[in-house]
Amino acid sequence: MTSPRRVTPEPFVWLMFSAGGVVAALILPVLLVLFGVAIPLGWVEAPDHAHLLAVLRHPLTRLALFGVCALALVHAAHRLRFTVEHTFRLGRYDPAIATVTYGAAAAGAAAAAYLLLTAFG
């Protein structure tokens, strides 16, 4: 006896969720400490523009940054989908909520790709 196979994107979404959680956990704290707290408060000197531009111009940096942005956004979208549904008991609106959250993540990832591909000419 095999159960009828249902094809759903859920396993793929959970995989992206997990990968996004890992990259967000690994990479975001140090960037947030630097650019959100330490540099604004003057504890650490800001990298000079030429250096940061050189780092960002490197294709590997941009590829990695795109991966981080896309995965972290899908992660956030996935979590927010269930947060909204569980916290406010809105499970019956799942199709609409999923469309909005993943749609926003896809739009963000597309914006990141566009920026990283075109802004450095």
Binding site: G36, A72, A76, L80, G108, A112
Partner: peptide, 12 residues
């Protein structure tokens, strides 16, 4: 996760 998304926007 909302703050993760917020910081991604700041990063971009």
């Amino acid at each position: 996760s909302a703050f993760v998304a917020l910081f991604i926007v700041e990063l971009l």
